[in-house]
Design a protein around this nucleic acid. Structure first.
Length: 350
DNA sequence: TTGATTTGACCAAG
DNA sequence: CTTGGTCAAATCAA
């Protein structure tokens, strides 16, 4: 538990610093001739980094108390997430062992995933996490049954993450997926936000693996969107050996829907996440990469629409500092050449 | 043989 | 009482 906390703390710091570094790069870019595309890309990276940072903060805030997210930042060595959150999570898990029938208080978020169809067949793919189906149920007034999955390592590692999968009635190529609970196993780097493992061999090692993560942004990645979906084509990409929120798709074409919400938390940024479905129950494929929407936050903070709300959160940048074993949260904004008077920084000086 | 899936039963919440 | 979520025995598959 402590290591998880530490890891997320580092990830948060890393994302914030990364955003700053890219901002510096963008600033430098204004002084030299460069394409609008390049600047736009840098801008997207910044948005993505802070989006992710905000997401970490929100993920780690106590779920029933949204106020915690707005508490003033501690003046020295702030701890993200709050220690209480982990104690609470542990308590939740202990309660689950005592009463596993219902898990009302588990954090839950939903997403919609569009399956990839090739040659008329929905492609089964793998997930960042190893799930085990433990039930299926016909839901009242629902056309399609709902399937229930739990983390494969629930028993061996006490990982109580679960998910529910149900085919959408509006679009049969879309699945509604609900995730509950955090992964305490180490399949993904983040407890709740899975990452694409380097390959299936690593993946098969499950919770015990010291996995290597890939990350989605690199050359050759193209992001497009139409009215309803975002598509990331990742052919000819070279995997990066550092972890991030991103993913390295196993195929070269990921499609997902930008309509994910965190339940009971309207303030929270939206996220998407990979999942997989049992081929035997028509729940095939998973095609979602983590997507983080800073734009909602931007809109809220600045009380106006985010300038670029179309390609939200797709761009991911170098997060190599996550690997730093002893990253200190005490860093100076001045040290990287940017003033600390950003109006939207939670707890930032102004 | 072992691990995953299926499926009817059980149970708690509303 | 109804319904959704989970359990666990039976079954399947590698």
């Amino acid at each position: 538990m402590e290591s998880e906390k530490s890891w997320e703390q580092k990830a948060l710091v890393s994302e914030l610093i990364q955003g700053l570094q890219i901002a510096i790069k963008l600033k430098e870019n204004f002084n030299i001739p460069s394409s609008i595309h390049t600047r736009d890309s840098l801008l997207q990276s910044i948005l993505s980094s802070y989006d992710k940072a905000l997401l970490i903060l929100k993920q780690n805030a106590p779920f029933s108390n949204s106020e915690t997210m707005h508490q003033p930042t501690q003046t020295s060595s702030p701890q993200f997430p709050p220690k209480d959150h982990y104690e609470g999570a542990l308590k939740d898990h202990q309660e689950l062992k005592q009463n596993s029938k219902k898990r009302k208080k588990m954090p839950k978020w939903t997403e919609q995933v569009r399956v990839k169809i090739q040659n008329g067949v929905e492609e089964p793919l793998q997930d960042d996490y190893s799930w085990r189906k433990y039930g299926q149920k016909n839901i009242l007034n629902a056309k399609y049954p709902r399937s229930y999955y739990r983390c494969t390592f629930q028993k061996s590692k006490g990982c109580f993450a679960t998910k529910q999968v149900q085919r959408s009635e509006e679009d049969t190529n879309v699945f509604d997926i609900s995730y509950r609970g955090s992964h305490v196993c180490s399949q993904g780097n983040y407890a709740v936000l899975p990452l694409k493992l380097a390959d299936t061999e690593e993946k098969s090692q499950g919770c015990d693996s010291d996995v290597q993560f890939h990350h989605a942004q690199s050359s050759g990645e193209r992001v497009t969107n139409d009215a309803n979906t975002l598509t990331v084509e990742t052919d000819n990409m070279t995997p990066h050996p550092f972890p991030s929120f991103g993913c390295m798709p196993q195929d070269n074409h990921h499609t997902f829907l930008p309509s994910f919400v965190l339940e009971n938390d309207p303030f929270c940024s939206t996220i998407s996440q990979t999942s997989f479905f049992s081929p035997n129950t028509l729940e095939s494929n998973y095609l979602v990469s983590p997507s983080f929407h800073l734009h909602d936050e931007f809109d809220r903070v600045f009380d106006k629409p985010c300038p670029d709300s179309d390609a939200a959160g797709i761009v991911l940048a170098d997060a190599s500092t996550i690997n730093s074993p002893n990253f200190d949260f005490n860093f100076s904004l001045d040290a990287v050449g940017i003033g600390a008077n950003c109006p939207s920084m939670p707890g930032g000086s102004s």
